[in-house]
């Protein structure tokens, strides 16, 4: 007993140091785990509130760019509407039954309060939370392309796992055919992401457009991602393609959060299939 007390006396600072380091490590590992990250994140009311005050003031500096972005998107949507009209007008026997209309996705507008892109595991903070119906694993996009997946919600704020996060894996495919692969990031350049495991027989050209594949339950089909910038010529196992993003991830303003209404249905179906 005397020995033990003496031991604690001698190494009390070291033991305290080790104890605190273990706590810090536990926080670190929990944060890297997508399912478990609960404790240390900026989606709580204190840090979220402070970040929202700051972004409210700094928002004025890039109003011009945001306006241009909105006008561009309006233009695209109006063109789409015109196309739709012309199809409806030329084929006179189309019946639109409003009872059969079935909504698959709900869109919510949110503002980015905190953006980061320089680390290997990047997270964003948006100003909508569970009070506005936002939950885990919903898609986050803007008018130019994909941004990330929601991860952690408090009542008023949500943390988003950016596509510039080494844990992020998103199903993506070529726009002109249906070959698909997995979108990942190697942590180097924030303008370039990598498409892995695309079949070798897929006809790839530099400049081809990549979009979301719709094979995951999170992202709707056909959201633009970027264009191919470099093709790996050697025949490696992991057929890797570099993709330049449409989005400038260092300059983001308003985003849309997409809630998929079919998600639980698809998930239960897949769960029974596995048994």
């Amino acid at each position: 007993m005397q020995q033990i007390i003496y031991f604690f006396q001698k190494f009390k600072y070291f033991l305290f140091f080790i104890f605190l380091e273990i706590i810090a490590l536990a926080f670190t590992f929990n944060n890297l785990n997508f399912q478990k990250s609960k404790f240390i994140n900026s989606a709580n009311s204190i840090t979220g509130g402070i970040y929202s005050t700051i972004s409210n003031t700094s928002e004025y500096f890039n109003l011009k760019e945001q306006n241009a972005l909105l006008a561009e998107e309006n233009n695209r949507l109006k063109n789409l509407l015109q196309k739709q009209n012309s199809i409806v007008n030329t084929a006179d026997s189309i019946v639109i039954d409003s009872l059969k209309y079935y909504q698959k996705y709900i869109y919510t507008v949110a503002k980015i309060n905190k953006n980061e892109y320089s680390k290997a595991f990047n997270f964003l903070l948006i100003n909508k939370g569970s009070n506005q119906g936002i939950g885990k694993e919903m898609a986050v996009i803007n008018s130019k392309g994909i941004i990330g997946i929601t991860e952690n919600t408090s009542s008023g704020y949500t943390r988003v796992q950016s596509i510039l996060n080494r844990n992020s894996k998103i199903n993506a495919r070529l726009k002109n055919n249906f070959y698909f692969g997995t979108l990942q990031w190697d942590g180097k350049d924030y303008n370039t992401v990598q498409l892995h495991d695309i079949p070798r027989q897929a006809p790839l050209k530099i400049g081809d457009t990549i979009e979301t594949g719709g094979k995951s339950t999170i992202f709707p089909e056909g959201i633009p991602i970027g264009t191919i910038s470099k093709i790996n010529q050697r025949n490696t196992v992991d057929n890797k393609v570099d993709i330049t993003l449409f989005n400038d991830m260092s300059n983001l303003g308003y985003v849309y959060v997409i809630k998929s209404l079919d998600k639980t249905e698809i998930r239960t179906l897949q769960a029974t299939e596995n048994e």
Binding site: L20, I23, A24, L25, A26, F27, T28, F29, N30, N31, L32, S37, I40, N41, S42, N44, I46, T47, I50, Y51, E116, K119, F121, F123, L125, R159
Partner: peptide, 10 residues
């Protein structure tokens, strides 16, 4: 807490 980095700074 502010920079979403788990416990790395700590």
């Amino acid at each position: 807490f502010f920079s979403d980095s788990g416990g790395i700074h700590a």
